[in-house]
Design a protein around this nucleic acid. Structure first.
Lengths: 202, 202
DNA sequence: CACTATTGTGAATTTAAATTCACAACAAGG
DNA sequence: CCTTGTTGTGAATTTAAATTCACAATAGTG
């Protein structure tokens, strides 16, 4: 096997992506250095050239996720300036993520990855609350434009929005992929919309 | 220390409860046989007199949870026959559970405990879907009595109900107990109620 | 009061990973 | 084309738990 030598900057990113790929595998399991290495055609010890230890890798993964989440929100923002459409698009993306490359949601919802070290746990907390704050922004914007009922607490609505995806992810994991995430989201959206939009609007 | 000898039937239950107690501890961590044993004033090897291995213990814990959840629902059913009140009471209980004895929610939401073995994972899936089915029943009943809008899909509503608690549990874990679960539930309930009740009812 | 099956102990043993280390191969700069 | 710092390897080593086992204590039973 031709395992080239590559500079750390490149490898680091490759390793993080390999880790996400491994986590996307069918079964839920502990992220093993050996699995990550194998997926890249490297030996476990090679990973230690780029990350001090498993912890450092996990931290890098969190950072990667934070970036991706943020980028996804940004992309949705540009795709539309209508807050309802934005929320819907985020839902669709989440559903797709869960069933097509579950590495990221699996990490967000899995304490195995961030649970142990307090520092990492709080890091994850910030990532999620940051995400919720952005959703909240979208909701506020919708309230400003009159599309979303003003009487609803934006912060609560944001968490409930999150609460559409999270149970789906959990059930999907538990059912070994049988639970129909996209179906659930498709059904939940109109109900959620019912909540958001004011029936006395016209 | 006087470590009495007790019959297996008793010990088994004690061990499961000790395990839940250990899991209720401040920090998220892997459930260790040694921690469970220590909490009971026993040695790790003693546990193996009652459970074939850690897996068997985990399975017993799941069974314990299933029973508790079911009992809680039953108790709420008897406490009131009004479906709205029942839902609210379940929410309150969940919030209390999370902040006061997080062992159970921690297990439900933590793949560390049920993730590895497919069998256990599916067992957990059945527990959660069973719970959702009971919530769904309550919602249907409310729709029958005209308290809850008939146009809402009961199955979706049940999952959204679950989606009020789940994000709270996650944030609570991540924040090391800082996130205000009861506060969130208190704020989310009226919003959820807004969704459930028909504004054109009168 | 024995007897015996059961429960508990402490000291190994096993297991599964992470991690380290001495050495090899390579890419880049002089 | 050397020299050197960097990346990769495979073989240990370490670590943290689970698990086993030979032996001890005890509770219930005849």
């Amino acid at each position: 096997m031709t395992t080239e030598k590559l500079p750390t900057e490149v490898r680091k990113e490759q390793i993080v992506e390999a880790a996400l790929h491994v986590l996307s595998g069918n079964h839920i399991k502990k992220l093993k250095m050996s699995d990550v290495a194998e997926h890249m055609g490297l030996t476990p010890s090679a990973l230690y050239r780029h990350f001090k230890n498993r912890d450092a890798l996990l931290s890098a993964i969190l950072e990667h996720i934070r970036t991706k989440l943020h980028a996804s929100l940004e992309s949705v923002r540009q795709q539309s300036d209508n807050s309802i459409d934005r929320l819907k698009e985020m839902l669709v993306r989440h559903a797709r993520l869960i069933s097509e490359q579950p590495g990221i949601p699996r990490i967000v919802f899995s304490d195995e990855l961030w649970g142990q070290k307090r520092e990492r746990r709080l890091r994850m907390y910030r990532i999620v609350t940051g995400y919720l704050a952005e959703i909240e922004d979208i909701v506020r914007q919708g309230q400003g434009s009159g599309q979303i009922r003003k009487k609803l607490d934006a912060s609560v609505v944001a968490k409930m929005f999150f609460g559409i995806v999270q149970p789906a992810a959990l059930l999907w994991h538990m059912s070994d992929g049988e639970f129909d995430v996209k179906g659930h989201v498709a059904e939940a959206w109109p109900v959620f919309l019912e909540l958001l939009t004011d029936p006395n609007f016209f």
